[in-house]
Amino acid sequence: MPTSPFIVPTVDISPYLAEGARAHNSAECARVAAELDTACREVGFVQIVGHRIPGATVDRLTRALDEFFGLPLETKKKYRRSSSENRGYSPPVSESLSMSLGVQSANRMNDFYEAFIVGTETTEYPDLDLPEASYATNIWPGDAPSFRSAVEEYFTHAQELARILLAAFTDALRVEPGYFDAMVDHSINALKMNNYALPEGEVAFDGDATGMGAHTDFGILTILWADQVPGLQILGSDNAWHDAQPADDALLINLGDAMARWTNDRWRSTVHRVNPPITDGQIIRRRSAAFFFDGNHDAVIEPLPGTVVDGEPGYPPITVAENIAAKVAGLKAGVKPTVALREAARVLSAR
């Protein structure tokens, strides 16, 4: 019997951005919430349109990526930070995202991409005693003078969109409005900007190298902008890898570990990866920017009431910061997480 084609659903979220939609009691919002619930249960990824991030803002972001990643490798390395801070520049083959799940490849650190990360700082919440490890100070590349303003503009829009999506997710889960507010009022947010095409001769391409290894995201939700270039693959419920790329003017949204744990896997933190975008033996340009909405560092992630059925194992409580720290240690230092992860078994059995 033929299987159904793998499809990432598309949802128009504009009703949640409409004037007066804060109450979220319109029929249009109810429809959007139902569509999101289906996508989160069945796929764990969804394409959104009607998000209202201006095209000009995205254009400025992409020019900023080109400005920074076009610099010589040795210049970019000036902006490298320690793995514990998870900020600044990461050179090619210095990370392995599959190790965030404890899945090791033949070459321990083999992800081909290079990246630059900025995020929420302690200075944004002066009245709170926040840990520097979770809210590290950003570093901005002076060698790319237009970079900071363009990135901060996009970051602001993505942050606002993430909170609107969380309101829609709250409705979709049928919990009371504002249920998650106390868990995200000083959320750790980060923007990871990635580049997969490097000038010839800067780094040797190893056949074992991956574009970005199989992984789940760490927090509540991710907003992904990406070039319309092949590479992104999603691990479906059929245990097979499926290609995915955004449609025109769409953003890809996926769930992270926090939401999967809160819903006890009713909603999926879907495993995904990026293969090197190769055409005729050459790596072609692929850029992406993933905005991670991760929640407060001290928010406790445990199953929501009613999500654990008698006899089913529920996730043990863990804070957002503890979960992120364990996965970043695998990503950047190759340290295997000490807790067995359900996602690792899915990766190892994938076809």
Rank of each mutant, 00 (worst) to 15 (best):
R148P: 02
E302Q: 14
P9V: 03
P317I: 07
L73A: 14
M1C: 10
L36K: 04
D310L: 09
Q104R: 15
I301S: 03
V32S: 04
A290I: 01
E160N: 14
F293I: 12
E160Q: 14
P316T: 09
F147H: 12
L161H: 02
S96I: 00
Y154G: 03
E312L: 06
T222R: 00
V203C: 15
V151R: 00
D248I: 11
M109Y: 10
A172W: 01
G334N: 05
V93W: 00
D298T: 09
V308Q: 11
A162I: 02
M109L: 15
L128I: 12
E124I: 10
Y89C: 05
T279L: 11
K332L: 11
D310W: 04
H272W: 03
E114D: 08
Y113W: 07
V347R: 04
Y125R: 12
A115R: 00
E95F: 00
V46S: 02
P54V: 08
I324N: 07
A106M: 11
F291Q: 02
S83C: 08
L165T: 06
S237L: 11
V151F: 05
S82V: 10
N254C: 10
K76H: 11
G295P: 11
V11M: 09
K192Q: 15
E322T: 08
L304M: 06
T137D: 15
V103R: 01
Q104K: 14
L221W: 05
D310R: 12
P72R: 08
N25S: 14
T307F: 07
T57R: 09
L166W: 01
R261W: 10
E202N: 06
L255I: 13
K327W: 08
R148I: 05
V271I: 10
D171H: 13
I324M: 13
N296P: 04
G306C: 01
L252K: 04
